[in-house]
Design a protein around this nucleic acid. Structure first.
Lengths: 222, 222
DNA sequence: TGACATTGTCAACACTGTGTTGATAGGTTT
DNA sequence: AAACCTATCAACACAGTGTTGACAATGTCA
C-alpha cells in the first residue's frame, strides 16, 4: 500500500501519463455532448484518447470513475466561479442571492451534458450522489448564512427553519435549471428561468418580490 | 373501448397469459426494493415470474419497456388518489394545495423504489422522460387553475406568470420529496417535508404563511 | 374429429460490452 | 546490467442482451 492519498474512485497516478488522463476526460466530455453515458463504451473513450481499452483501465477503474473525476474538477471550477460572484456581490444580500443563482446557472450552461450524465448516474452510484450532494450542500450553507443575516436584520420572514428553507430553494433551483436546459417538459424557458427562480427565492425569504425589478434594497453594513 | 389498444412500448397481448405479465411486473417492483434497475437482469425478471428469458421478450421488448408499463399503471393510480384528494378539498383553495401535495407524497411513498428507478432512467429514455413529464404537467395544470382563481380573488401576488410559478413549485416538490425519501443529502427530514414545501407554496403564491398553522382562509364560494 | 391457426415456451445462437491476465517495451534508478 | 517502475495491449473469461427456429398446448370451425 503506497501512502498516496486514497483518491476517490480513481487509481492513484504519478505525473507522466497525465496527458493521457486529460485526453480521456476531454473525450468523455466531448462524447457526452452527442449521446448519453450509457451509449458511450469504455472502448469509445479509449480510442478517443488514442489508447487501447485495457490501457483505459490503467487510468480509471471504470467509466463511472472517470465521470466522477470530471465532476470533481467541474465542482472545483464551480466553487471558483461562485467565489468570484459572491465577492462581486459584496455585502448586498439580495445581490448575493442573484449572483449565487447566476453562478449556478453559468456552471450548468458550461457543462450541461456532464450535468445530465451526473443526474442520470446519481441514483445508481453512491459516490456520485455523495459528491453531487456535497456541491448542493455548499450552496445550501451559503444560503443559510444569508437567511440568518436577513432574519437578524428583521427583514426576512420567520416560520421556516433557515436550513430547511435553503434546502428546498436550492433543490428547486437545481431542478428548474436542469429542465430549462435539457428540454425536459414541463420547463420554464431558459431566458426566464433565472428571473422566476429569483422571485420565488425572494417571496419565500421575504414574502414579496423585492429582487425582481432591481429595486433598491437592504444592504448590509454599507 | 377495445382491449387491444396500441399500448406504448409493450407488445400487444390478448387475455390469457395476462397473469404472466402481471407476475413480471410484480417481480420488477419487488426486485427494485432490493437493488437498482441496472443490477436487475432480464433473466432475474423472467425467473422471478417463472418463465425463461426468451419468454420475457414475448411480453415486453425490453426491461425498460416493462418499467414503462409499471409507471403507466402507477400514474393511473396516482391520478385516482389525487382525484379523491381534490374532491375532499372541495372549493377551499388552500386545502386544495395541501391535499394536492399530500397525494403526491403518498404516491412517492407507496412506490418509492419505482420512483427512484424512473428518475434514473429518465435521462436515458425518451419515453420515460415524456411520461414522467406528463405526470408533472398534470400537477402543473391543476396548480395553474388554483393560482388563477386566487389571482382573480385578489389574494395572490402578481408578478410571476401562473404557469411559470406552477412549474417551479411542482419541480421543487418533486425534488424535495425525492431526496427526503431516498436519503440523498442534503435533505429535509421526511416528517418535515410536507410542511416546509407547503409553506413555500404559500409564500410564493400569497406572500405569507397562511397555510402552515391551519388558520382559517380563503374559501371559494361555500 | 381432425386440420389449422393462435398463443405461449424455450434451447441455442450471435453479439456487444466489461473487466482481467500476462507478456512486453521503454525509461529510471542503483 | 540488474532491478524497478510506468505504460501498453493481445487475448481471454464472462455477463448480459436480443433473436431464431423448433415445438407444445389450446382453442376453433369445417
Amino acid at each position: 500500500m503506497t501512502d498516496i492519498a486514497p483518491d476517490r474512485g480513481r487509481r492513484q497516478r504519478r505525473p507522466t501519463g497525465d496527458d493521457r488522463e486529460r485526453a480521456i476526460l476531454a473525450t468523455a466530455e466531448r462524447l457526452l455532448e452527442e449521446r448519453g453515458l450509457g451509449d458511450i463504451s469504455v472502448d469509445d473513450l479509449a480510442r478517443g484518447a488514442g489508447i487501447s481499452r485495457p490501457t483505459f483501465y490503467f487510468y480509471f477503474p471504470s467509466k463511472e470513475a472517470g465521470i466522477l473525476t470530471l465532476l470533481d474538477r467541474v465542482a472545483e471550477e464551480a466553487r471558483a466561479i461562485r467565489g468570484r460572484a459572491l465577492e462581486r456581490a459584496g455585502r448586498d444580500v439580495p445581490e448575493i442571492w442573484r449572483q449565487g443563482l447566476v453562478s449556478i446557472l453559468e456552471t450548468f450552461r458550461q457543462h450541461q451534458p456532464l450535468m445530465l450524465a451526473v443526474a442520470n448516474m446519481s441514483s445508481g452510484n453512491d459516490e456520485v450522489r455523495r459528491l453531487w450532494g456535497e456541491i448542493i450542500d455548499g450552496f445550501v450553507a451559503d444560503t443559510v448564512l444569508g437567511i440568518d443575516s436577513e432574519l437578524q436584520r428583521g427583514v426576512a420572514l420567520e416560520g421556516i427553519p433557515a436550513r430547511e428553507l435553503a434546502i428546498a430553494l436550492n433543490w428547486m433551483t437545481e431542478r428548474v435549471f436542469h429542465v430549462a436546459l435539457s428540454g425536459q417538459e414541463p420547463a420554464i424557458a431558459e431566458h426566464r428561468a433565472l428571473e422566476v427562480v429569483l422571485r420565488i427565492w425572494s417571496r419565500a425569504i421575504y414574502g414579496d418580490d423585492g429582487l425582481g425589478a432591481g429595486a433598491g434594497w437592504s444592504t448590509l453594513g454599507g
